[in-house]
Amino acid sequence: MNVRRSILIVDDHQSIRDPLATFMRRYDFDVDTACDGVAMRQLLKERSYDLVILDVMLPGEDGLSLCGFVTEHIGTPVILLTAMTDQADRVAGLEIGADDYVLKPFDPRELVARVRSVLRRGARRRADDAALAAQAAPAADATAEKRYRFEGWSFDLTTRELQDPQLSPVPLTTAEFHLLRALLENPNRVLSRQQLMDLTQREGDAFFDRSIDTQISRLRKKLESDPRQPRMLKTVRGDGYLLAARNITLAP
């Protein structure tokens, strides 16, 4: 039996919000709507959603701020609706945590396709998490754990646990786990976006443009004391990214 996926649409224009909700219900989505950030936050307190469709230009708290809140505190995937045509503005939306963006005006059929794509990626990540957990249980008994140590950090490949220099655990998504592993396996080396996609992509994954930028931004927030001036996870303009770390070791 198919489970109806729950969607929250946040847009201050009723002429967009209500017709879109009606359209998406035809595709068997369970849809709620909100007109601003206050209403959105209240609904998020009352129930959980599989995905949020969020307009950037909202009265009061804007969509980028709300997207950052959802990404940091709830973890629900977000698709931004934006009339911004500047590429830098759209990338800023992805870097703050959005999973995709759709430019206004849009074809609602395209939005449904984007929603389904984001939900599929989330389902694959959850399946990967379960598979890795199942593999880790017997591996812990049979072999010694492998652990990277770098700049005071500790990264366990078996349990997927990242610890900061104060030994506090730092949670990682599946995508962040694969990205950090790829960077640690190629330290102090510039890796292009395409190289990072090749190193982290698993069969069946579908990456949209700038997805690596988004994951780098999220990982940087966890590794860096000041993500705006990164010391380890650096951008090499026009070329890609590198992990600048000394004395990287891999040992039991």
Results as ranks from 00 to 15, higher is better:
108 P>N: 12
248 I>W: 13
207 F>T: 02
38 V>M: 14
160 R>L: 02
57 M>Q: 13
99 D>F: 06
175 A>S: 02
153 W>Y: 14
14 Q>A: 15
63 G>C: 05
227 P>E: 01
85 T>H: 13
168 S>L: 01
59 P>A: 07
106 F>T: 09
103 L>Y: 00
158 T>E: 11
177 F>Q: 00
150 F>E: 11
109 R>M: 05
46 E>Q: 09
190 V>T: 05
71 T>H: 11
92 A>D: 06
232 M>A: 07
83 A>F: 02
149 R>D: 02
146 K>E: 09
72 E>M: 05
137 A>Q: 13
184 L>Y: 09
202 R>A: 09
90 R>C: 15
97 G>V: 00
91 V>Y: 01
240 G>T: 05
59 P>V: 00
230 P>G: 07
32 D>S: 11
183 L>C: 06
231 R>S: 11
229 Q>G: 06
71 T>V: 05
50 D>M: 03
191 L>C: 10
206 A>M: 11
231 R>K: 13
53 I>C: 13
236 V>H: 10
5 R>V: 06
98 A>D: 07
69 F>L: 05
194 Q>W: 04
89 D>N: 10
237 R>C: 02
237 R>M: 06
195 Q>W: 03
23 F>E: 10
148 Y>P: 01
46 E>G: 00
194 Q>Y: 01
189 R>K: 15
113 A>D: 12
39 A>S: 10
127 A>E: 14
194 Q>E: 08
47 R>M: 12
156 D>K: 00
90 R>H: 14
200 T>A: 08
67 C>V: 13
76 T>P: 10
17 R>G: 10
3 V>I: 12
202 R>M: 14
1 M>K: 09
124 R>Y: 06
26 R>G: 15
68 G>A: 09
48 S>K: 07
135 Q>N: 13
231 R>A: 12
80 L>S: 04
98 A>F: 07
